[in-house]
Design a protein around this nucleic acid. Structure first.
Lengths: 235, 235
DNA sequence: TGACATTGACTGACCAGTCAGTCATATATG
DNA sequence: CATATATGACTGACTGGTCAGTCAATGTCA
């Protein structure tokens, strides 16, 4: 019943599709076979779903997010979500995967930094503030803290992919700093969490208290580095 | 469509509830009568509901908590909850409010330490680990982080009652430490968050990652104090 | 007895996940 | 090149179950 005439597709679902088609035609010169039209569009849909899920999960948390809303925001039918993701939880995990894991590469400090360890950590802190604390990724981190205990699979994944790797890299940097004489508290290598803690606090602060008391996260992290390295000479 | 999800039904409307109704009646001293049987029992019921709600909300978060479960755990019928609280949201807010008060006593750093500032902070850290990180109070903190953005009233309350006071007291301690020459980074007084950050991380760690990598929180906090005060002489 | 407290079955809304059907696109064929 | 057929991505109404909040009936106390 209620056959919907062909206009159906152009109603809500089209924006992505049309631009996708246009882009693809422009981008595909006559020669070799690029990714097929279909596969490309499927990939774009998937992306749109993840982007929409990002907004919805951040705004409402896991349990309160409705997949109907995600679908509407993505310009897609609800069933389409299930073509790409097993269920709501899988969608959430995928979200963490795509939004956070790529950051590791950027956040993981180089093994042998060219300059001083302090400089490396300052760059690290800056990146963290820029890419996480002041963006919606920060909310995602908060969301993991919030939902982690109820979704052990997510907490496990996050620990494996982000926390353990990040801390290992941090530990390496600290040991380098100790070896070079920049850091004078050798036990710090056992607790790399200490180095990251203020950054995490900054993330949480931005979400909860920024309007009560704005926080200059970068300045705070610099002071923290002063503690670790002894007071800085210049800034 | 775009119905507000069920947990937000009453949205911002839920201001402070008239929750103290039963208490007031019980406490009304005027009459010669001692606490009436009825009022006493009502107060007990109310307490039982709040206690049960505490467990359930901690374990499941706001959205996933069922009031049927709260009622069963409290040993009352579901309708009874609505005799004491306007709705689920009011119960949640009231719960956090009443649970925070005991937190304040535990979290507030001492205003004027008898001995050295380092000793005061070490005692503070110890208390924090004992009373918060390793108890359900820690979960309460996590709960505030989790639900805070969706319950601004709670985040406000928490900021006012716990965060701002705690940080003010901490700032006082830091300034004392600077004046006494124990602390050599004067900017630290501008960011008392730095001193508390590892403790917060410990709380979160216990909830999320303890089984992957157990954390000796007290040892970590001692190392952090080493950073702040210079290496300790003895342990 | 009358006033108030309590109950729990019930309602109405809500929502994750399903699946039979549609249709644009790709491929095969004339 | 034009037409026929096959494919599978996509749709959205529907189901089965869940749960917040209500209220008529049933206690219970003063």
């Amino acid at each position: 019943m209620s056959k919907i005439p062909r206009e159906r597709r152009s109603s809500a679902a089209t924006r992505l599709t049309q631009t996708a088609a246009a882009d693809e035609r422009a981008a595909a010169p006559g020669t070799a076979r690029p990714a097929s039209n279909r596969a490309e569009r499927a990939a774009e849909r998937r992306e749109a779903i993840v982007a929409a899920a990002f907004d919805e999960f951040i705004a409402r948390g896991f349990a309160a997010t409705r997949l109907d809303d995600v679908a509407r925001r993505a310009g897609v039918a609800k069933g389409t979500i299930y073509l790409h993701f097993k269920d709501k939880e899988a969608l959430f995990e995928e979200l963490v995967r795509t939004a956070i894991v790529p950051l590791i590469a950027r956040l993981a400090p180089p093994e042998q930094p060219a300059g001083s360890v302090r400089e490396a950590l300052e760059r690290f802190a800056f990146t963290l503030i820029q890419e996480v604390a002041t963006t919606r990724r920060g909310d995602l981190v908060r969301l993991i803290v919030a939902e982690g205990p109820r979704f052990p699979a997510i907490a496990d994944f996050y620990y494996r992919e982000v926390v353990s790797r990040g801390l290992a890299a941090m530990r390496g940097l600290i040991q380098l700093g100790i070896a070079r004489g920049e850091i004078r508290v050798p036990d710090l290598a056992n607790y790399p969490q200490i180095v990251v803690a203020p950054a995490m606090i900054a993330v949480i602060w931005k979400s909860l208290f920024e309007r009560h008391a704005p926080l200059d996260a970068m300045a705070m992290l610099r002071v923290h580095l002063d503690l670790i390295f002894g007071e800085r000479s210049a800034s």
